[in-house]
Design a protein around this nucleic acid. Structure first.
Length: 725
RNA sequence: GGACCUAUAGCUCAGCUGGUUAGAGCGUUACAUUGACAUUGUAAAGGUCAGAGGUUCGAAUCCUCUUAGGUCCACCA
C-alpha cells in the first residue's frame, strides 16, 4: 500500500501545493510551453471582475468554464493564453467606498476632497484586487499572471485616451446639452443601461392648466407641469385641430406658464385625453418633441431633485412634496378632472437606487449613427475605406457570422439591443475613473489629445468616463494596444469570450463597438454565454435573502475540484443553474472515489513496460470503449457542451471503471494468464481518464499523476489523448 | 406593448441533427459488504415527457395553439 494516498482524499492538503507547482513551472505563460509544428493559438481574456469586493459563485462558474477550455487547448498543444485582470468599475466602486466612508466615519467625499478621496478608493480597490487574485488561484485557474492587467492602470489609460482622441477626431464623440438620466443621489449622469425599472402604483391626474385653457392633459408628475412649454396632440386628432399653432399664457400653481399647441406624430390619441403636456427639460421624449418644434425648455427641478421653478411656495421642496401642493391647488381651483391609479415603471439608478430625474445637461456622447470612413477593415461586407457607422459595424459582425454567439438565441437579443441603441452618454460626474482627455481655456478654446496641452491656464474636463468605455477595449488594451505588439498580433482576435448573459448588452456589445471601430476587426470569434447561479430554490443569490453560497467556503469544505464540477454538470449554455451544497458534496464524493480508484490501481497493477499485451474479449472491448469515451468527451468540449463531457466522465469512471472493470480485475489479477493484461488495461484507462478529467478537476488529477509518475512531469502539459477534433 | 426561455421520476436535471422498452444523481425500499472506498455494491419501486391538435412509417425531440412559471427589452405621458 502506498503512503502517498491519504485516507480519505484531502483537497486542503493538496490544492495550494499543486497550484504553487503549476506557477513555478511557468506553463501558464504560453511563451514557456513547448511549441509544436502547426500549432494553433487559443486566447481568452478573463472578464475582469469588479474591484468592489469578493468573488461570487457566478465568477466561480466563469473561472471553471474558462479553465476547462484553456486547459483543454493547452493539452491539445495549442499556444494558449488566458489573460487575467480586474475592472475598476468606476461608479460601482466609488459608491461602495462612499457608503463605507459614511458608515464608518460619518463623512462624505467632499469632506475629503478629490485627491484624498481617490486615495481611499484606490486603497479599497487594491485590497479587493488582492482578495480577488487569491480567489482566482483557489479555483485553480491557469491564467497567465505575468500579463495581468487593470482597466485603470497606466497602459490601459493610454489606450483609453487614444481611443477617445480618435473618436473625437472622427466626430463620433461630441459634447452636447441634452436631457440625460440624472441620478440625484449619486450626483452623476448614467447610461440607459444602468437604469433599473421598478413597477409601482402611481396616480394619473387629468386636469386643465387653467379654467380658460381648452384642453385637458394627464400626467403622473404634476410638479413638472410648471415647466411645460407646449401641449402636443396627434396631427389627425380632430378634437384639437382648431387649437394647433395657438399660444396660451396663464399662471399655473403660482408660476407663469406659456404653452403652444403643436401637432406631433408621437402622441397617442387613445392615451388619456390624447393631449400631452410637453416638459422639454424633464422628459426624454418631450425633449425630442421640443427639438422638432423648436420649443423653449424650462428647467424647474435641480440636480438635487428639488424644485427650482421661481416660485417661493415650491422652490426647495422635494418633487413629491411639490406634487402634493400642486394637486391641492388643482383641487381647490376646480381644475382636477380625474385621479386614477395606474401601474407604472419607475426608472431608478442601478447603483444608488435613487429615482432618475431626467435633466438637461452638457455631456459627452458617442454617436452611433454618424457616418465615418473606416481606414482598415477586416469585416466581411464592410471594405476598407468605406463609409459606415458604429451601429452598422456592430450589426455586421454578428449577421455575417464572423462572431458566433452561443447559445444562438442570444444573437436575436443582441440585434434587438442594437436596433434600440441610442447615442451613448459616456461622461460621469464621479471622481474615480479615466478622466475625459479634453482641456478648456478662456475664450471657449477646446483641446482634445492623448497628452495634456502645453502652456498654462488649460483646465481639464472634470468628468470621468463610463467604466464600459475602458472595458470595451479589454481584448486589445490588455495585449498592448495602441502599440502594435507581438502579443496583439499573435492573440487578437481572441478565440472565445466567455461571460454571463446578463452583460451581453453592456460589455459584449461595447467590445464589439470599440474593436470594430479601432482595429477594423472582431474582438473574438465566439461568445459563450453562461447563466446565472441561483440557489436550490431557483432564487437569485443575494445578501438580503441570506442564501449566498460563498465559493471560498465551499472550496474550504469540499475542494475546488468539487466546486468546479458542481458548477459545470447539469447546466447547458445560457441556462441558469441551481446550486446547493449537497450538489458540491456529491462531487467531493466523486473526488474521493477517483482517489480510491487510483489507490487500487497503483497498489494492484504494477507499472508495466507500456507494451500493449494481447487482450481478451473483455479487455479489448473495454479498450474500444475507452477510445469512444475519449472521442465523445473531446467532441463535447469542442461543441461547448462541457456539462455533457463532465457528466460522461463522472459516470464512466464511477460506474464503468470502478464498478465493472475494477471488479473484473480482482478476478483477473489473481490469474497468472490474465494478470498482465488486466494490470496494463487498468493503468492505461486510469491514465487516459486523468488526462480527460484534468480540465474539469485539475488538482486531484495532477496530484494522482504526480504519485503515479514521480518524475516531476506535469499532467497539465501532457498530450490530450485524442487526435479527433 | 415586443421578444425569449423553461415545463421529462418525490427533488435536481440529461436526452445532440426525430429511430428499439425515455436515462442519471439525490431521495425511498430491500438485500449484501469492513473493503481500493469515513463518501461501498446489487437490485426494486417510481413517468399520459404540462395540455390539445398537426407533420411523419415513427415525436420527449419538428410545426401550430393553449396553460403555468421565469427572464430580457421598450417606457405610455
Amino acid at each position: 500500500m502506498e503512503d502517498a494516498f491519504s485516507k480519505p482524499y484531502d483537497p486542503q492538503a493538496t490544492e495550494d501545493r499543486i497550484y504553487k507547482k503549476w506557477l513555478e513551472s511557468g506553463f501558464f505563460n504560453p511563451d514557456n510551453t513547448p511549441t509544436f509544428p502547426g500549432q494553433e493559438t487559443f486566447s481568452i481574456v478573463l472578464p475582469p471582475p469588479n474591484v468592489t469586493g469578493t468573488l461570487h459563485m457566478g465568477h466561480a462558474a466563469m473561472l471553471a468554464l474558462e479553465d476547462i477550455m484553456v486547459r483543454y487547448h493547452r493539452m491539445k498543444g495549442d499556444k494558449t493564453l488566458w489573460l487575467p485582470g480586474t475592472d475598476h468599475a468606476a461608479i460601482a466602486t466609488q459608491s461602495k467606498v462612499e457608503k463605507i466612508l459614511e458608515k464608518e466615519e460619518g463623512k462624505r467625499k467632499r469632506d475629503l476632497g478629490r485627491e484624498e478621496f481617490l486615495k481611499r478608493v484606490e486603497k479599497f480597490a487594491r485590497d479587493s484586487h488582492d482578495t480577488i487574485v487569491s480567489q482566482v488561484r483557489k479555483m485553480g485557474s491557469s491564467v497567465d499572471w505575468s500579463r495581468e492587467a487593470y482597466t485603470l492602470d497606466e497602459q490601459r489609460n493610454l489606450a483609453v485616451r487614444t481611443a477617445f482622441k480618435r473618436m473625437y477626431d472622427d466626430g463620433l464623440i461630441y459634447r452636447k446639452n441634452r436631457v440625460v438620466n440624472w441620478d440625484p443621489k449619486g450626483q452623476t449622469t448614467i447610461s440607459d443601461d444602468e437604469i433599473v425599472y421598478e413597477s409601482r402604483k402611481a396616480k394619473l391626474y387629468t386636469f386643465k392648466y387653467s379654467a380658460e385653457f381648452p384642453i385637458a392633459i394627464s400626467t403622473t408628475r404634476p410638479e413638472t407641469k410648471v415647466g411645460d412649454t407646449a401641449v402636443a396632440v396627434h396631427p389627425s386628432d380632430e378634437r384639437y385641430q382648431e387649437y394647433v399653432g395657438k399660444e396660451y399664457e396663464f399662471v399655473f400653481a403660482g408660476v407663469p406658464v406659456r404653452v403652444r399647441i403643436v401637432a406631433d406624430e408621437s402622441v397617442e390619441k387613445d392615451f388619456g385625453t390624447g393631449a400631452l403636456g410637453v416638459t422639454p427639460a424633464h422628459s426624454q421624449i418631450d425633449w425630442e418633441i421640443a427639438q422638432r418644434h423648436s420649443l423653449p425648455e424650462k428647467q424647474v427641478i435641480n440636480e438635487y431633485g428639488k424644485m427650482a421653478a421661481g416660485s417661493p411656495e415650491l422652490d426647495g421642496k422635494k418633487t413629491t412634496e411639490a406634487r402634493a401642493i400642486i394637486v391641492e391647488w388643482l383641487k381647490s381651483n376646480n381644475l382636477l378632472l380625474e385621479e386614477k391609479e395606474i401601474d407604472q415603471n419607475v426608472a431608478t439608478a442601478e447603483r444608488t437606487g435613487a429615482i432618475i430625474e431626467p435633466l438637461p445637461k452638457l455631456q459627452w456622447f458617442i454617436d452611433v449613427n454618424k457616418e465615418f470612413v473606416i481606414p482598415y477593415s477586416n469585416i466581411t461586407g464592410i471594405p476598407s475605406g468605406s463609409a459606415t457607422t458604429l451601429k452598422k459595424l456592430m450589426k455586421a459582425v454578428v449577421e455575417n457570422g464572423q462572431i458566433e454567439i452561443i447559445p444562438e438565441r442570444f444573437d436575436k437579443i443582441y440585434r434587438h439591443w442594437i436596433d434600440n441603441l441610442r447615442d451613448w452618454c459616456i461622461s460621469r460626474q464621479i471622481w474615480f475613473g479615466h478622466r475625459v482627455p479634453v482641456w478648456y481655456r478662456d475664450g471657449g478654446e477646446i483641446y482634445c489629445d492623448i497628452e495634456a496641452p502645453e502652456g498654462v491656464d488649460w483646465k481639464q474636463d472634470e468628468d470621468s468616463l463610463d467604466t464600459w468605455f475602458s472595458s470595451g477595449l479589454w481584448t486589445f488594451s490588455t495585449l498592448g494596444w495602441p502599440e502594435r505588439t507581438k502579443d496583439l498580433e499573435t492573440y487578437h482576435p481572441t478565440s472565445v469570450l466567455e461571460t454571463g448573459y446578463d452583460i451581453l448588452p453592456f460589455w459584449v456589445a461595447r467590445m464589439i463597438l470599440m474593436t470594430t471601430y479601432l482595429l477594423g476587426d472582431i474582438p473574438f470569434k465566439t461568445v459563450y454565454l453562461h447563466g446565472l447561479v441561483r440557489d436550490a430554490q431557483g432564487r437569485k443569490m443575494s445578501k438580503s435573502l441570506g442564501n449566498i453560497i460563498d465559493p471560498v467556503d465551499m472550496i474550504a469544505k469540499y475542494g475546488a475540484d468539487a466546486a468546479r464540477m458542481s458548477l459545470v454538470v447539469g447546466t447547458g449554455p445560457g441556462n441558469d443553474m441551481k446550486l446547493s451544497e449537497d450538489k458540491i458534496k456529491g462531487y467531493k464524493h466523486f473526488a474521493n472515489k477517483l482517489w480510491n480508484i487510483a489507490r487500487f490501481v497503483t497498489s494492484n497493477a504494477p507499472a508495466s513496460s507500456g507494451q500493449r499485451p494481447e487482450l481478451d474479449e473483455y479487455w479489448s472491448a473495454k479498450a474500444d470503449e475507452l477510445e469512444a469515451v475519449a472521442n465523445e468527451v473531446t467532441e463535447n468540449i469542442e461543441k461547448y457542451q462541457f456539462h455533457l463531457a463532465a457528466d460522461k466522465l463522472y459516470h464512466y469512471l464511477w460506474h464503468e471503471f470502478a464498478d465493472n472493470m475494477i471488479e473484473q480485475s480482482k478476478l483477473d489479477l489473481k490469474d497468472p494468464a490474465k494478470q498482465e493484461m488486466a494490470a496494463w488495461s487498468l493503468r492505461r484507462i486510469l491514465e487516459t481518464n486523468l488526462k480527460l478529467l484534468h480540465p474539469f478537476m485539475p488538482f486531484i488529477t495532477e496530484e494522482i499523476w504526480g504519485i503515479l509518475y514521480g518524475d516531476g512531469k506535469l499532467l497539465m502539459i501532457e498530450k490530450w489523448p485524442t487526435n479527433a477534433a
